[in-house]
């Protein structure tokens, strides 16, 4: 996939996330489409490239959406880098493995993101976990599964024999 395609897909997702996502929000919980984008690329790319994509995607997301500038860039860099560790040598990912990997990665992302975001606030950890982190994790995971079915070629690795070096 060329860089132009990456960029075009990214901005489509960003547009949806910033303008249309409220249409599908459930009790103010919305999925993180940019995270799904970053994680899909992390299953295809080298660590450094995944980190750079994560950082860039997060930074642009920060510019357009965030209330805490730099936090998305920070978290997406980590998510992209960690996603590489879930790469497989096989050219296609089984749904179960894919879902499990995304569940873990999204949960880690959301956990850290929400904890940082709630710093200095009066919301307790368990409330945060059950009313924000877990619902958002599953909602984002659901979006990732939809991607899995809609765009299976996107998950074909860009690296011969996997990128786990």
């Amino acid at each position: 996939m060329s860089i132009i395609k990456y960029v075009v897909i990214y901005f489509i997702l960003l547009f949806v996330e910033t303008n249309l996502l409220h249409l599908i929000s459930i009790k103010n919980i919305t999925p993180d489409l940019i995270l799904v984008y970053v994680l899909i690329f992390s299953l295809r790319e080298h660590k450094s490239k995944a980190a750079i994509i994560g950082f860039s995607a997060g930074l642009i997301q920060d510019v357009f959406t965030t209330k805490f500038f730099g936090l998305s860039a920070f978290m997406k860099s980590i998510a992209g880098f960690l996603g590489v560790f879930f790469q497989q040598k096989r050219n296609e990912y089984k749904l179960l493995y894919y879902s499990t990997a995304f569940l873990v990665l999204i949960f880690i992302h959301e956990l850290i993101y929400q904890l940082i975001y709630s710093l200095g606030g009066d919301i307790g950890f368990w409330n945060l976990l059950f009313y924000s982190i877990v619902p958002r994790t599953f909602y984002t995971l659901a979006m990732a599964v939809i991607f899995y079915f809609i765009f299976p070629p996107a998950l074909r690795r860009n690296i011969a024999g996997g990128a786990k070096e």
Binding site: I52, G54, F55, L59, F68, G70, L71, A73, F74, S77
Partner: peptide, 10 residues
């Protein structure tokens, strides 16, 4: 990437 992000956050 993390360092730049932290600087931006700060």
């Amino acid at each position: 990437a993390l360092l730049i992000s932290i600087i931006l956050m700060a």
